[in-house]
């Protein structure tokens, strides 16, 4: 049985500390002045996005996994609190399946990308 503190420290608080930096970076790359382009739309242009994914793929992937861990564990905690832990197996199982699906999708997004 995993201790509650282990889950919370590593899946909620440590990921939260990492997310502060990762999320700031992820939001700042959409600021046009920092990317040397004119508009917000230009930051989403195919060449820019390809450059971002191919150069910082690992960082994006870490961000996706850390965000999924933090988000899904949070969602799980909220659902368990709302149901007084009655459907623990069902909720945790569903969350783990969702994590695997979207983790795989995120991995494919980075690995399977081709130049535009």
């Amino acid at each position: 049985m995993v201790k509650k503190s282990t889950v919370q420290i590593w899946l909620q608080y440590v990921t939260a500390i990492l997310l502060i930096f990762l999320l700031t970076w992820h939001l700042l790359v959409r600021v046009p002045w920092l990317r040397g382009v004119e508009t917000f739309k230009d930051t989403l242009a195919s060449e820019k996005v390809y450059h971002e994914v191919s150069s910082y793929g690992i960082l994006l992937l870490i961000f996706a996994y850390v965000a999924l861990l933090h988000g899904f564990n949070g969602l799980r905690t909220i659902l368990l609190e709302w149901t007084s832990g009655k459907y623990n197996g069902l909720i945790t199982g569903t969350i783990i399946i969702l994590f695997i699906i979207f983790g795989a999708l995120a991995t494919y997004t980075v690995i399977g990308i081709t130049p535009p």
Partner: peptide
């Protein structure tokens, strides 16, 4: 975040 990962996967998918 689920929708976001799905949408940003468009170039690869």
């Amino acid at each position: 975040i689920m929708a976001h990962i799905f949408v940003t996967g468009t170039p690869a998918r």
